[in-house]
């Protein structure tokens, strides 16, 4: 099952990609997806992982909803979902 991953702003810089598709066999929680992403892109991990957890200025969205307002890292991703790594910003 394909999951679309998007990397925005500083995460885009770190991954060198705007978007990629990761194929999963079964639905998995975001925490497991993070491991796959970090293995593919160690620079992303260096960027968004700080001592004690994820840097709160880097938000993770599932289909446009911040996972903090879903089930956090336990939120499961399913077939066709879009997971976005969002960057700090100002405007």
């Amino acid at each position: 099952m394909p999951i679309r991953i998007r990397y925005l702003g500083l995460v885009y810089r770190a991954s060198g990609l705007y978007e990629e598709i990761i194929y999963l066999d079964t639905p998995i929680p975001i925490s497991a997806l993070l491991e796959i992403v970090f293995e593919r892109h160690p620079e992303v991990m260096k960027l968004i992982y700080v001592e004690g957890g994820l840097n709160p200025l880097y938000r993770i969205l599932l289909n446009g909803r911040d996972i903090e307002h879903l089930e956090g890292l336990n939120t499961k991703v399913y077939d066709g979902d879009v997971v976005t790594f969002s960057s700090p910003f100002g405007g």
Partner: peptide
């Protein structure tokens, strides 16, 4: 970090 993102 926000200043860095704004720069980039």
């Amino acid at each position: 970090d926000i200043s860095k993102a704004l720069y980039q």
